[in-house]
Amino acid sequence: NGSPVPVPTPNLIRVVKNSNTLGIAIEGGANTRQPLPRIVTIQKGGSAHNCGQLKVGQIILEVNGISLRGREHKDAAKIIAEAFKTKEKDHIDFLVVDPG
């Protein structure tokens, strides 16, 4: 669209499932003020915290290559929950952006 909006660089972060919980809280989703899920909490002792790279405030663009764009909150949460639950992989790849 030509407007000079700075585009933050996405980061791919691999979270190894080394704890019984993922340990993040997210808010947002399609048709809300926050159209892509944003990390609002990271719980100590969870796999996300152990990974050391996920941060509060980051916006999740993709989970294991699945785009969260256009997905409503419950759908996005389900995708993340299922990525954690599946035994096919011992990790989850998050594509996130750090706003500002």
Binding site: A25, T41, Q43, I80
Partner: peptide
């Protein structure tokens, strides 16, 4: 000009 947020806030889910 004031920008109004008309979209609802989201719920929060712990995962």
């Amino acid at each position: 000009r004031e920008k109004r947020l008309t979209l609802p806030p989201s719920e929060i889910t712990l995962l």
